[in-house]
């Protein structure tokens, strides 16, 4: 795993906070207890969504925690692309296109090589090879394998071999064919669709004017539990804000169904009864909590002085009493 330089960028696209870099994803999970949810699927087979891949979508709370602690920064990705590509210099652009061409040719070469190797293997499996292959052709093939770019392999090698063998099956071997004239041109380059933007663009700069991610009122509970070393995942499955795990979500069952609220926000006792009963039924505790705004808060560390103070969070765990 490559090391990730902090702060790493979080792409903000259409209101979502996304991580596209596998290294950044595992870094956030290992070192910052941030899991996110994999949402990537195959573009033209989007119904095959059992196994999802990158990108990872972060909850706004997760993005905010990372930004507040200076582990990451938000990038307005649409703007970064517009700016980056419009202002790209001509030299950079040409160099990039040339790079793409070279990669395409390389790709075509290796595809051709593997096709040749495949057909040779298939022939060998049938036990029909070598002896019937004319000397010149077999030498030509080995040359191709050794240095594909420099030589001029006949494109028809395999076809020739095939006809040879078919004939050999049914009759005496004819006189070896004359070597075919070889084409000197390189294989046609594959067209490459670039899948990353960084490169060609250089790493986006930190834009300090960007607002912190907007978070719901349950955020203080999330931040508090995160600061205690817990992992959180979205809680829709259990009708709460967060399902909270004591360790990595792949290793542990969750302990709490967390619902965050304001200090003076009214809630129905039926919610407590329902949440407590559901939680106990799945061996979890229902956790409600919020910032105690009655206590003097301490002002936020970091560069964003504009946002509100941090107050101590108080939480209550609820379980069914069993009677």
């Amino acid at each position: 795993m490559a090391t990730v330089a902090e702060p790493f960028p979080i792409s903000h696209i259409a209101g979502r906070y996304l991580l596209f870099d596998v290294d950044a994803i595992s870094h956030a999970r290992r070192n910052h207890n941030i899991c996110g949810v994999l949402i990537g699927t195959i573009p033209n087979l989007s119904q095959q969504n059992v196994f999802l891949g990158i990108p990872v979508e972060l909850m706004p709370e997760e993005a905010r925690v990372l930004v507040e602690q200076n582990h990451a920064y938000i990038v307005d990705d649409a703007e970064a692309h517009r700016k980056g590509f419009m202002e790209m210099s001509r030299e950079d652009r040409l160099k990039y296109l040339q790079d793409m061409d070279e990669q395409g040719i390389e790709l075509a070469m290796s595809a051709k090589k593997s096709a040749a190797a495949r057909s040779e293997k298939a022939l060998k499996d049938k036990g029909l090879v070598r002896a019937e292959v004319p000397e010149s052709n077999s030498r030509a093939m080995s040359e191709t394998a050794a240095s594909p770019a420099s030589t001029s392999t006949p494109d028809t090698t395999s076809a020739v071999a095939n006809t040879d063998e078919e004939i050999s099956l049914f009759g005496p071997t004819p006189s070896p064919q004359a070597p075919v004239a070889r084409s000197d041109k390189k294989p046609e380059a594959h067209y490459i669709t670039p899948t990353t933007s960084y490169p060609p663009l250089s790493q986006p700069v930190i834009d300090k004017t960007l607002q912190l991610p907007a978070v719901p009122r349950s955020f203080p509970l999330f931040r508090y539990m995160h600061s205690q070393g817990y992992f959180s995942m979205p809680g829709l499955r259990f009708g709460c804000n967060y399902t909270i795990y004591p360790g990595d979500t792949l290793r542990y069952h969750s302990h709490f169904l967390g619902t965050g609220m304001d200090w003076d926000q009214e809630f129905d006792l039926l919610d407590i009864v329902g949440g407590g009963r559901l939680g106990t039924g799945v061996k979890k505790a229902y956790l409600i909590g919020g910032e105690d705004t009655g206590v003097a808060g301490k002002s936020k560390h970091g560069q964003n002085d504009s946002s509100a103070d941090i107050y101590p969070v108080r939480a209550f765990s609820i379980e069914w009493a069993g009677m």
Binding site: M225, Q228, P246, H255, F256, I272, V273, G276, G279, T280, K283, K284, A285, L287, R314, A315, F316, S317, I318, E319, W320, A321, M323
Partner: peptide, 11 residues
């Protein structure tokens, strides 16, 4: 009847 703890207490 529900048990309420003052703080984060594991289930």
């Amino acid at each position: 009847y529900y048990i309420v703890h003052d703080g984060v207490v594991k289930p």
